[in-house]
Nucleic acid binder design. Structure first.
Length: 333
DNA sequence: CACCCGTGGAC
DNA sequence: TGTCCAAGGGT
């Protein structure tokens, strides 16, 4: 085994994280669920979702047989909702296969599993050889080897995977992979890295140059566009009109207040009853909520929901926030 | 390669 | 309040 791997493994054993929920009584299913949830999402955010998910969907078969409504409801608030649909599809595919895939090619055929996640499943579920490059590994390698370039640059990414394949040990890779992630999450952090506690300090090129925080290079910023969104507030006794959003685009597969085009005639005779601003990763939403003066007939994909049902359906976080505030203010309940 | 896809934590 | 960014994948 190479020295780098041995140092990471030894450190993980002594100083790494061992109490994460998905590290207990490891199964491929738990690894799959946790990895999908952890994509672009912090550990502390994922933990309660993971616990609820395992309580309701304890195994692949249970998830495969679940209704999409319930799947989305358990994912609501976590974001990147295509992950929930992909996980549901993955469970169906694996149930159909009759066995959990355990090689790189088969894993990457499954919806939601890319190169990183396939490597992570090999590492964590099977303790097999499975190189990983995620944000932690990118940051750590860029510093350790003083690699130029920023995330997404093909030349850099190619080099990172090459290094990962080279450094990943044939044995004990579960601990190695966990060590890389733990180092990135606890010491080799984006801001204020704790180099004095790092087991790799002696050979870290960025540390030697005293330029740790200059690696990796930041991605060039782009201007975040602003978009407007118009939503309808339609009540009928204690019921609220909601619509199922399509399976693509923002908030896909969730329920939400009915959204209308800015030029929709219904807005010409509607009263503005509120607004909010919401930041997405790629644009800013300026939302206005309108109460139509005339009666509104529900369209296809729309339906009435009692306010007591709202806790158990999948709503976008800012929409839920606004609805709850509105119901509270209007003195209902 | 560029863009789309959410949300909340941390500073 | 603004900004970065977090166990990425899909198109």
């Amino acid at each position: 085994m190479n020295d780098f791997a041995q140092q990471v493994i030894d450190w993980q054993q002594q100083q790494g994280r061992h109490d994460l929920p998905w590290q207990q009584a490891i199964t491929p299913y738990k690894v799959l669920v946790s990895e999908l949830m952890l994509q672009q999402t912090q550990v502390s955010t994922v933990i309660p979702y993971f616990q609820r998910w395992l309580a309701r969907f304890p195994d692949v078969e249970t998830l495969a047989q679940a209704e999409q409504d319930e799947v989305m409801a358990l994912w609501q608030g976590l974001g990147y909702y295509a992950r929930a649909r992909n996980l549901h599809k993955a469970a169906k595919a694996i149930a159909e296969l009759g066995a959990f895939p355990s090689d790189l090619v088969s894993l990457q055929q499954i919806p939601g599993i890319g190169r990183y996640t396939a490597g992570a499943i090999l590492s964590f579920a099977y303790d097999a050889y499975g190189p990983i490059v995620d944000g932690n590994v990118r940051r750590l390698f860029c510093r350790y080897f003083a690699l130029e370039g920023h995330a997404g640059q093909s030349q850099l990414e190619k080099r990172l995977w090459q290094l990962a394949e080279q450094l990943t040990p044939a044995q004990n890779n579960r601990r190695f992979a966990q060590g890389l992630l733990d180092l990135g999450a606890t010491l080799c952090t984006a801001r204020k890295p704790d180099c004095e506690r790092c087991p790799l300090q002696a050979d870290c090129q960025a540390y030697r140059l005293q330029q740790v925080e200059h690696f990796p290079r930041p991605k060039p910023k782009k201007v975040k566009p602003s978009k407007e969104g118009h939503f309808l507030w339609v009540q009928q006794q204690d019921q609220l009109l909601l619509e199922q959003r399509p399976d693509s685009g923002i908030w896909s597969s969730l329920l939400a207040l009915p959204q209308v085009d800015p030029a929709d005639p219904v807005l010409q005779q509607a009263e503005s009853v509120g607004s909010f601003r919401h930041q997405f990763s790629h644009y800013q939403l300026e939302a206005t909520i309108w109460q139509p003066q005339q009666q509104v007939e529900e369209l296809a994909g729309q339906g009435w929901y009692h306010r007591r049902q709202l806790t158990e359906v999948a709503l976008p976080a800012p929409i839920r926030k606004w609805i709850e505030q509105q119901l509270k203010q209007s003195g209902v309940d």
